[in-house]
Design a protein around this nucleic acid. Structure first.
Lengths: 346, 346
DNA sequence: TTGTAAGCGTTATCAT
DNA sequence: ATGATAACGCTTACAA
């Protein structure tokens, strides 16, 4: 059996509670005893049992992570990078990260309940935001500390969240294309259930509207966040009578699908068609041509999420916060000023 | 405060121990009481406190994950996919996954000690294998249950591990190129401290030797597992008096760097130079030309790792195992039969 | 400044 | 088949 607080107490000739106080660095213990106790701890190679500590103190120093059920999320570099940020934010405050596992939505939900009611985590970070989310509703009802990476669909002002200004970012993207003279701009987004898609669509529409351009429903396509999604979308758009000359694509991976498809169709990028996308993951500049993309600072999203949740956990009635991570447009070579070279009508 | 076993006991008119037995589905409890107790649990919305259970039973049902310290690991899709496999394997047996956090090697080591001595995990999975690893040595010394994804550098027969036959895989890769008539084959590998690099280099050498070809030290380059690594390596190799006509690259991402660099140098793929790589991550077929790559079944690596560790945890003296995940060569368009079109000497 | 003792919510060993 | 009761290893009033 491992060495416990009692063993240390015995060796140092003090009570177990004293050892506990030394660990907590309680100021009411004399330096002399502290020294003696610490020596005993070192001698025995003592390390506190975190489970026992959690039980006694009702706090685990563990943060639960909830991912969306879709496989697609894992395939996207967003996942890795946000984890890196979370990891760094958590580590700084000595918190551990635990992942929910499960494939279906239902399994994930049960996993969260297990974590929460089982007392295994002090708080939860949701790494997605969708319409009518069961997990979010559950956490709210139980008043369990949690935070959303992304913008909650409802009651955003009552839920702490870390997000980009996606509406603005999308407006920036569309305005960039408008600035290059494009007037026929298509929008290729992810699932309409995802708040991020909703927001980016909004920004796109705002930009068009403010520039006096019509919003054409046939120019707006929703597909999954993967390459095939981008491929399907661009095919649909290019088969229109008057196809767009530029695309706002809400994810780099989708954009790669778009680019590949265009290349296969022998359409020149950026001479004939411009593409701007989101996330600026590593792949963005591995594409040929490299993608102009809106960098949303994924690492920072994760880092601030971890920090903010820990703040909520450590300070009673920390106010609800909305943390906006800045984005920036990274110009590469996938967009060009529109000349009169239109795509031949089909 | 949450509802406990005592509350359930009171409502069902039994002793707490009986409730505990019902939870464990102990056969010595009558069906009648089981029913009554379960009803009470449902009525109160009871959920066992996992922390208390862990303390009493000295087992957490949590697996600790240890990543290499390098940022590069996270940027590689290997990370996401192996996590998916681990997640599925763990979930099936109701285990949770906890990640070690920390940037430097030292921080990670401390994180592991914290997890282990703190009793927070029942076992550990190392997601890398390198020469002289501090973490591995620590776990061995303490006889703490753990398993390695990859081949341990030393005492591989005493440590359960889940791996590919990397030596064989690399031989397959080299032989494939030899089969296409290449005789000047370069090797671009990762850090020499990583066992995977060592093994793949070995396989490469074996293939050359068995085919009566010389092993040229200047044809062997080690770089980091990222795109720049591939770029640097190929530049070095192409500046040789007699540059290779084909490359075995031990990672897809590096291979992308190789391909991009070749394109920039106006060297035609696969007409002038062939490239074969490892891992077959999604990017492999997004490259132009799409990469011929050895699929090492990353998901399966993770999945089997989780399952095997759980077996070790649940069965006393489970024997040490070596689990080899099969690989297969996926032919795409980055390799071609060598004709007499050599690269012009520099 | 330090010790005593009562929890924290389970499991597990005795009894009965 | 079920009930007391003692762990599990720590924290934290309350005493002294």
């Amino acid at each position: 059996m491992a060495v416990t607080i009692k063993d240390v107490a015995k060796l140092a000739n003090v009570a177990p509670s004293t050892v506990s106080r030394v660990i907590a660095n309680n100021p009411r213990i004399s330096e002399k005893t502290k020294l003696r106790v610490r020596e005993a701890m070192k001698k025995l190679g003592y390390h506190p049992n975190l489970i026992a500590r959690s039980l006694a103190s009702q706090s685990t120093k563990v943060i639960g992570l909830v991912f969306p059920s879709s496989d697609i999320f894992f395939q996207n570099p967003f996942f890795s990078t946000v984890i890196q940020g979370l990891s760094e934010g958590a580590h700084e405050k000595q918190y551990a990260l635990q992942m929910s596992t499960g494939k279906t939505e239902e399994e994930i939900f049960e996993g969260v309940v297990h974590m929460v009611q089982g007392g295994r985590v002090d708080g939860i970070i949701l790494l997605y935001s969708r319409v009518n989310d069961q997990v979010l509703n559950y956490l709210r009802e139980r008043h369990f500390p949690f935070l959303v990476v992304g913008k909650p669909y409802e009651c955003a002002e009552e839920i702490t969240h870390v997000d980009n200004d996606n509406c603005r970012a999308s407006r920036d993207a569309a305005e960039y294309l408008l600035g290059l003279g494009h007037t026929k701009i298509g929008f290729i987004g992810g699932s309409e259930k995802l708040v991020v898609t909703i927001e980016r669509l909004l920004g796109y529409k705002e930009a068009l509207r403010e520039n006096g351009l019509p919003i054409l429903p046939e120019y707006i396509i929703h597909e999954e966040f993967h390459r095939e999604g981008g491929q399907d979308a661009v095919k649909k758009l290019l088969s229109l009578d008057i196809p767009p000359t530029a695309f706002v694509v809400t994810d780099d991976i989708m954009a790669l699908g778009v680019v590949n498809t265009l290349v296969e169709m022998d359409i020149k990028l950026p001479e004939q068609v411009s593409v701007i996308s989101f996330n600026n993951v590593l792949l963005a500049d591995m594409s040929r041509p490299p993608l102009t993309s809106i960098d949303i600072n994924i690492f920072e999203l994760g880092y601030q999420a971890a920090r903010s949740l820990i703040q909520m956990l450590e300070n009673d009635n920390e106010p609800v916060k909305r943390i906006i991570i800045p984005h920036q447009l990274v110009e590469r070579l996938s967009c060009e000023r529109v000349e009169n070279k239109l795509i031949a009508h089909k």
